[in-house]
Structure formats: C-alpha cells, structure tokens
Amino acid sequence: MKSDSNLEKVLAGGHFAVTGELGPPRGANLEAVKEKAAHLVNMVDAVNVTDNQTAVVRMASWAVSLTIKEMGLEPNYQMVCRDRNRLAMQSDILGAAALGINTMLCLSGDHPSFGDHPQAANVHDIDSIQQLAMIKGMRDDGRFLGGDEIDTPPRMFVGAAANPFGDPFELRVLRLGKKVAAGADFIQTQCIYNLERFAEYMRQAHDMGLTEKTKVLAGVTPLKSGGMAKYMAKRVPGMDVPDDVVKRIASQPKEKQAEEGIKLLCEQIEQLKEMPGVAGIHLMAIEWEHKVPEIVERAGLLPRPKA
C-alpha cells in the first residue's frame, strides 16, 4: 500500500468505491459542516473537501478534512494550484500527512475572476499535472520538488480530476494519460449524464491501458429539479446533459421531480457498475447531503466495505 487511505484499501480490495463531497463553511464555525458530514458517515469511502471552490474564500480544506476525519470519515483533501506556490503546497502536504490525511486531489482551480476576490494574484506556480508528479515524488522518492530529501515522506494516495466532455474532445483521453503518467492513483470525473459518450471515453482510456494504471471514479450528481437539469445543460461549461435526461426530469410534476432525479441517478449507477474500467462513483450531492444515505441505499451500494 502506498498510504493508509481508506479509499486506496477499498479500491485495492476490488470493491466498487463511493466517494462524497463537502464544501467548507464561509466562516469560522464548524457546526454546519459537521452536521452535513454526519449524513455521510458509513455511507461513503472518502469525502472530497473542496479548496476555495469557485475561487470563493472558505475555511481551509485541511481544517475541515481533519474535522471529518475525527468523525470517522476519510477526507480527500483537495488542493488547487491557483492559491499556493510550490513551497506552500509542500508544507501543507507535510502537515496534512502528519495529522492523518491520507488522500489528496490535485486541481487547477477556477479562475479568480469567478470568485469573491477577483483582485487576487493568480499563482499557478505549477499546474495540476506537475502537482501530481510532485506529490508522487515526495511519497515514492522521498524528495521535495527542489530535490532535497524528506526525512519522513508523506504517504498520500493522490488523485486528479478529469472532464470527459471538455474541449478539445480529442485531448480528453490524452490528457487523462498525462495525469496517469504523472502519477494519478485515482481519477474523479466531472458529472456524467451522457453515459454513451462516457462509455466511449472509457473505451478509449481502456485501449490506451490507462484503466489498468489508475482507478476511475465516475462523477454523478442527482438532478433535484427540471430547472437544475436545464441549468446544467445550458449554463455549465463542459457539461453534457442529453435532452432526454432534461425532458425526463422536467416532464414530471414539480413535487415528483426530485424523486425522478434519484431514480435516474440509481439507474445511471447501475450502468456505471457494469461499465468496463469504472472503479466506482464520485457522488456530488452538494446541499443534499441528507439524501446521500437514501441514494447509496437505493443504489445498492451499502454496506460500505470496512477498512
């Protein structure tokens, strides 16, 4: 084992993995996030803790990661390249590892112009692929990026994000290949609604031998309403929501749309379980954490394997 990550153990054991997601609070108060996290205990194998998501200041990802770790969850500590140079990244990684964080996700991060501090300097000292390689090097070679030896290397299970539907399409699998080459132990994808196109992506990834070298968790998000389905289809860049999916949710009466969304999600999860190369799902149910137990139960994903 490369780490003490519960996610690594679950994947190594050949189980179909389930990860969740939490967004840290906009203030120095942990109560709300603890409440949300409580819904996820025993329901998922790891929980992504976002890092200044959408370039809006929130509590440090490592702080919330440690908090949910105490609650019995396995945090997946996210780190974006936008806010830290290589010094800050590596010192945070050492601190996180020393305090029991075992899993990390490397990301570029949304541009500051989207957030609450558009005036901020936009760091990007290294990119997310170089960040992956850096963490792998710290762990496997026991060396800082600068070359010096680390006396106790951080044992991190390290992953990256992938958007199978981003542009240019031809580069999507190639870039996945670069992430794998850089050392991604696992990949979590953007929300998938177009399963056919995703299957094609996975087939290409498989042909390149990537699914043997990394574990791909397919991103899924329940559609809470027809409005949300339309929004995701039209407004979210790089998102592919087929018309029949939008229609299926939107054609239901208002009070039944959420239920239809969960039903659809469970069907998608069934298909994903069967799809070659898919090692699990990444369930993003932001502000719907209380529904996670119901979703994983109905999707036949319980009980979660014990570490």
């Binding site: 570029s108 541009h111 992938a162």
Partner: peptide
C-alpha cells in the same frame, strides 16, 4: 492559468 500541461477543464 499559465498551465504547461493544458487545457484545464474550463476550455
């Protein structure tokens, strides 16, 4: 984002 191994997911 002066990415050297691009593009990011936002393209």
């Amino acid at each position: 984002k002066r990415i050297f191994n691009g593009p990011c997911g936002g393209s």
